[in-house]
Write a protein that binds this DNA or RNA. Sequence first.
DNA 1: AGCGCGATGTAATCAACGCTTACATAATGG
DNA 2: CCATTATGTAAGCGTTGATTACATCGCGCT
Lengths: 221, 221
Amino acid sequence: MLESAMSPRQISKPRARQTREARPYHHGDLRRVLIDAALQLAAEGAEVSVREAARRAAVSPGAPFRHFPNRDALMAAVAEEAQRRFRVEIEAALADAPAANALARFRAFGLAYVRWAMRNPAHFEIISTGRYFAHGSSAELTRDNAELIALTERMLTEAVAQGLLRSTDLKRVLIAGRALIYGFARMNLDGHFPRWGVEEAEIEEMAEGVIDLFISGISKP
Amino acid sequence: MLESAMSPRQISKPRARQTREARPYHHGDLRRVLIDAALQLAAEGAEVSVREAARRAAVSPGAPFRHFPNRDALMAAVAEEAQRRFRVEIEAALADAPAANALARFRAFGLAYVRWAMRNPAHFEIISTGRYFAHGSSAELTRDNAELIALTERMLTEAVAQGLLRSTDLKRVLIAGRALIYGFARMNLDGHFPRWGVEEAEIEEMAEGVIDLFISGISKP
DNA sequence: AGCGCGATGTAATCAACGCTTACATAATGG
DNA sequence: CCATTATGTAAGCGTTGATTACATCGCGCT
């Protein structure tokens, strides 16, 4: 709106590529910008609409459909990006964890998992819920997610190998561990922790306590 | 559309009350019918819209707003009804459980919880997510939910009193237990169990295993 | 009785949304 | 240099939640 009175194209043949100063007819990388806008939109708690993303990109309401066949495809791309960020952070946390003890690594994993979910609730919701776009519409997302599961499986397998666990029913322990961590994260962002939830530190403390309780429960006495 | 050629009101002054044959101008109990329609809509996997609920009640699109100030209020009423049904079933399951052992009761609770969530995924989603209407817009719902939490707390307190638990940090055990059960239920309906999820019996078996693992983890050796 | 008024429905309308189509313009490469 | 393709705009469709003005019922009061 503001720029409606500006010279329509600034310079007829700007040749200005990287500058991006006056939004040439062809947007730099609209696809990326739309994904970022949608991510930001979600992070603000607003519901993501294609139109609003287009609005933030200062582009007509129909433009996004040049890059995404439909809203679901946008959301799938958004989910992919969120999942990528999630994975990066998890792996960073594990890189800092001691490599020796498998259960200590599991603990670090769980804490990083919960922490990211707490700090990026809307993005976590998009990633984990599968209710924001047609299920299985992104192979990359399911692959990334499977990789994360495989990661925890490896940690617990290692724990068994190290003789740390009471039970050797790996599958059962794996599912329980996933359910515990996922459940804790979701309880948080589904509002199941009344309003002592304001203190992030307190929640992390709870997460530690819960994970430690679980670990001590499955550990050999 | 089809009835556009019918006689406008069938009989000018029907005086037909209970018959409902020709849908009198005043619907019997539109509020209840709308809630039921919305519940059914959700159960069918469709997304709940006020218009569609009105359509199923054979009523004009504006009529629901005589009973609910907005869509959120309808959804809140729907959630209340779903929560009521949930609670009834949980309590029925606990009525059948042995009163003696507190942990056995906890186990029965968890299984009933997961089972209901599996069989009523959309309703469970509406109840538990708090993302389908303004948070805290129904006092009854939060009260019912709090009562359920208090129920599990009582069971675990009793377990402590019976000297069954290793840890006496009740709060921690309570949160872990809730996270485990909630997480398992949500993983299910969020599609985290690929497609061996088709077998309901298998999932229940997994639920048993996971809950038993947890209980044995917190039990005194 | 009857009638008046509140309760409850309808009809028409609005803005926002997802999505499609026809068209305009920029970028690119033969 | 120009034609082809990529990418944006403009306009419009059908659906949704929500509001407003109006129609109709039915209960309670005198």
